[in-house]
Nucleic acid binder design. Structure first.
Lengths: 226, 226
DNA sequence: CTGGCTGTTCAGCCGATGTTCAGCCGGGGC
DNA sequence: GCCCCGGCTGAACATCGGCTGAACAGCCAG
């Protein structure tokens, strides 16, 4: 999952970037409205955390611009406490959730998880695919109850696949959602990781669709659960 | 499906070519208006992606030329943000859809699919012919609900046939739409693939019209669905 | 400083895929 | 009834994409 963090305060930025990174997201950062608007339209984020008080262009306008351009990415806005007018402006502009400063990082993460879940059209908080289960809260995964030891990137890869299970995901799409901005395009890292994940979750769960990408499926003999 | 991509920026070109290729289209590229005009009139594309800001001849003029020449190919134009006059010019010149830069590759692909669907006169996103069904989004096909294992070229062949079902398609036409520019004309590859596809989707669905080409039809005993 | 753990790169291997070829078949014209 | 041409098919082949094991580099913890 790849997140855009729009925040001008350097301290808060550092703190959130750290927290989001720890939680297993790839994070890009925009310090002002201009850059935010640009990045948001250019890169395929899975969610955006947007501070409303920003230099250059204010947050609500940026958001409004995105929505006008038909950008459906879930957006969580951060507002100063009591700045009601701001908050209203944010919702009018098309925010999906909000959080007033100051807040606990934990709460931000929880709301973000909820947002991502909703945007993928899932109702349940835990993501499953056959006997494979992934718990975003703890950033852990298990097969048939047996916990897996996944590294950070392996987890992120699996997370993205499970959120889009059944669909074919191209290697390019994976790269774009697992890494932040700059990444060497011609590299077979993804293949290597697909291999490692396969070894850990068991053969047959990740199909290769030659020339197109990969697809996560439930094994046939496993009862499928929502 | 064969696409003409007209774009002068090398980076964007590379990116789009990749994405379009991944999505299963055959892609030709024209870096300037002159070549675009030529290719567009020479080769039978299924859709054209046209950047308006171009060297030599500007995009709108090229498009106008095509339309004057009665070229009906659906055209999707790319404009710089806020270049309203350009956009208007583009529509006046006969564009079918537009997208402002910057944009998400995903959105371009979605709009392209919509355009191709519309141009074939279909309303539904999934293409069917009797019990045969083809889902362009997932690049999958099925017969009577049973998924088929098709290779990339087999899929493209079937895609073209199903989009023009009932009509006789010549071998030349198939070659022109399945491959990009240079392809050895005297080769029986198409016949081989017709054979393979027949074997996979069941006999009788692809008729041979001797001396003319092939035609995809629904089997008689199958209820035809919209 | 050292040792592991993680992510990346590389090279070789393997199988799928697209292409070619040669021979066969069958329909239509004579 | 016969011949010829176009189309079909099975098999062989080359190529390319994807997989794997192993080595390497960077990082963090001890």
């Amino acid at each position: 999952m790849r997140i855009l963090l729009v925040e001008d305060d350097p301290d808060l930025t550092r703190q959130l970037k750290q927290a989001l990174g720890d939680a297993g997201y790839a994070v890009d950062h925009a310090p002002d409205g201009e850059e935010a608007a640009f990045l948001g339209e250019t890169e395929p984020y899975d969610a955006i955390v947007l501070d409303l008080g920003l230099p250059k262009i204010d947050g609500a306008s940026v958001l409004e611009g995105w929505r006008r351009a038909n950008l459906a990415t879930p957006v969580l806005i951060l507002t100063a406490r009591g700045a009601w007018s701001e908050k209203v402006a944010g919702f009018d502009a098309g925010a999906d959730d909000y959080l007033t400063k100051p807040f606990h990082t934990e709460e931000l993460l929880a709301r973000l998880r909820a947002l991502l879940r909703r945007s993928a059209g899932h109702a349940t908080p835990s993501l499953t695919c056959g006997a494979l289960r992934l718990d975003p809260r703890a950033a852990r995964a298990s097969v048939a109850g047996e916990p897996l030891r996944l590294t950070s990137l392996e987890y992120r890869l699996l997370h993205y696949l499970i959120m889009h299970q059944g669909r074919v995901i191209s290697r390019t799409e994976l790269v774009e959602h697992l890494y932040d901005q700059d990444f060497d395009r011609d590299s077979n890292t993804i293949e290597v990781f697909i291999g490692r994940v396969r070894k850990k979750i068991g053969q047959g769960r990740v199909e290769t669709v030659r020339g197109l990408g990969y697809r996560l499926i439930a094994l046939e003999d496993e009862a499928s659960e929502a």
